[in-house]
Amino acid sequence: MIIKKGCNFESEYEDGTLRVSLIGEIDHHSAVSVRTAIDEKIYSLRPRKMIMDLSKIDFMDSSGLGLIMGRYALIGKLGGDFCISEPSDRVMRVFELSGLGRIIKIEKSGK
């Protein structure tokens, strides 16, 4: 079994929309560094909308919920819209436990 090293992200910014695609495993260890880097993007770009793409996440525990909740709150504070996109069934299970599905918009392509 391969022990994967943390979490990375890719980002795109166009017409006021910041899309951040998280890649890898989100736990407490990886969330800290990713959080700082994403927040730097948010503060410098001030997006009107942020989409957090979770389709490339292999693992997520409750630290991922903290990461999502924190970005949702920050974007809200700056007056923007926030949504998550393409969560796997696995990510949805953790997400639903928290009740966040009732607060945060989820985009799914319906695959």
Binding site: A31, R35, D61, S62, L65, G66, M69, V94, L97, S98
Partner: peptide
């Protein structure tokens, strides 16, 4: 303040 979600035990139980 460190963005802990408070869901750790809930996840374990589930």
């Amino acid at each position: 303040e460190n963005e802990r979600s408070g869901m750790g035990f809930t996840v374990m139980e589930s």
